[in-house]
Amino acid sequence: MKKLAKWRLFSLLALMALILSGCGKPYLSTLQPAGEVAQRQYDLMQLSTIIMVGVIAVVTIIFLIVVFRFKRKDEQIPKQVEGSHKLEIIWTVIPILLLLVLAVPTVIETFRLADVSAMDEVNEDGKTDALVINVRANLYWWEFEYPNEEIVTSQELVVPTDQRVYFNLKASDVKHSFWIPSVGGKMDTNTDNINKFWLKFDSKGAEKANELFYGKCAELCGPSHALMDFKVRAVPSDEFDQWVASMQGIEEPIQPETALAQEGQDLFNQSCIGCHAITPNNASPEAARVAPNLTDFGDRAYVAGILENNEENIKKWLADPETLKPGNKMSKTYGELTPEQIDALTAYLMELKVQK
C-alpha cells in the first residue's frame, strides 16, 4: 500500500509538471512567440523535441519487444546477429539522417538571424533606413538610445510592430544579457565589444500582451540580477512615430504644474540632476551614463522596472531603494530623504510626461 501511495504521489507530481510546463503569459513566455525571431526559434525547438521524443519512443518499443519476445525460456541459445552489415548500416545511417534534419535548418536559421547588414546601409543623410537602438546595460538598469532619432530613454523600450528593429548591445560595468522571452532569444552585453542582432515584434502578439512585453537580464550579474527587468512597449508604427515626435519636442525640462511639483523640481535640480537627465538628448552614443534618463518617467508602466508606476510605489522607491533592489548605485549616492521631500519629488516625477 505504501508503494502504491508513492506511485500515486509520483503520478500526481508528474501530471502537475506536465500541466505547468504549458503555462505562460503572452508578455513573458517563450512558448507563446510574438515575433519572427521567436517563432523561428520555437519551430526549431518543436522540431528537435519531436525528433528526440520519436527516438525515445522507438528505442523504448524495441526494448520492450526484446524484453518480452526474446525472454529466455530454456537453455537454447538464440540466433546470434553480431556482425550483421545490414543492421550496422541501419543504426549508423539513421542517426546521421536525424542529425542532418536537425543541423541543416539550425545552421540556416543561425545565419539568417545573424544578418544585420541593414545596420550598415547608410542613406544620403548619413543615417540608416532601419530602426537601430543602442542598448546599454548597467547595474541594475537599462538605457535605450535611438541614434537616428537622437533621443535617449531608460527602463522602457518603445518599438514599432511588424518591422525589424536592430540592436547594438553593450554593458557599462559587468556582463549582462538582453532577453525579451516572448520575442526572441537572449544575447550577451559585454564591456569590451558590441553585439548586434535584430527582433521583430508581431502586432497580433503585441495585442495579446496588451502592447507590453517583459524584458530580462539573463546573465547572473549581482545581488539584484533577478530584479534587472525592463519593459517593452510594442505599438503600431504611427503611434511609435508620435512617441518619437513627442520625445524630440522636449528640448527643455518639463515644467511642473503644481506648487508641490515645483518644490520637487527644485530639490531634483539640487541633487538628482547630477546623475539623472530629464531631456531625451542627454549624451552621445559612446558616453556612459550614470543613472536612468527620466524624461518620460510619468509615462512609464513601471518604477525601476519592477514596481507598478503609481504614487505609492514611487515613494517606496525613493524612501528605500536598497531594500527593493539591493546593490543598486542610487543607494550609495544619495542621502536619506524626509517625508516632505519624498512627497515633492514624487509629485514632480509623476508630471514628467511627454504624451499628455
Rank of each mutant, 00 (worst) to 15 (best):
T49H: 07
E263T: 15
I306V: 06
D241E: 14
A344N: 06
I96Q: 09
A344D: 04
C23P: 00
D238W: 14
I273Q: 14
Y42K: 07
T346I: 11
E263R: 15
V81I: 00
L113I: 03
G83K: 00
Q255S: 14
S29E: 01
P326M: 12
P78I: 00
D115W: 02
H276Q: 08
L220T: 14
L199C: 02
L87G: 00
E322L: 13
P78Y: 00
R112M: 06
E308Q: 13
L260C: 12
M247E: 09
Q76H: 00
L349K: 03
L12R: 00
H276M: 11
D343N: 12
E312H: 12
N190H: 12
G305E: 03
G327E: 13
N313Q: 05
G22S: 02
C221Q: 09
A14T: 03
A218M: 12
A5F: 03
T279L: 07
L20R: 01
C217Q: 11
I65A: 07
C23A: 04
K315E: 07
G305P: 03
W141Y: 12
K329N: 15
E312T: 09
G24S: 11
L99D: 05
L102T: 00
V174R: 15
D192Q: 05
N148G: 05
V55I: 14
P105Y: 03
Q255R: 15
S177H: 12
L44T: 02
I94W: 05
E312M: 08
A57D: 04
K329S: 15
M45G: 05
K329C: 14
R136Y: 11
G274T: 13
K86E: 01
H225M: 15
D320L: 08
K71E: 00
H85C: 02
F201G: 01
N168C: 02
K170C: 04
I342K: 07
L4G: 01
P26A: 12
Q265I: 10
G184C: 04
R136N: 06
L15G: 02
G335T: 02
K204T: 11
S224M: 07
K79F: 00
T338C: 11
S154H: 08
S237T: 10
P256Q: 14
L100A: 07
R164L: 07
F178W: 11
K3F: 07
A245K: 11
A218E: 10
L87P: 01
E36N: 04
T60C: 13
L13A: 03
P223T: 13
L294Q: 05
L345Q: 04
V174C: 13
V244F: 09
D162V: 06
W243K: 12
N168A: 01
P181C: 05
V152G: 07
G222R: 06
I61R: 06
T92M: 06
L307W: 03
Q39E: 05
H176A: 10
Y348G: 04
Q155K: 08
V174N: 13
E257G: 14
F213I: 03
I194P: 00
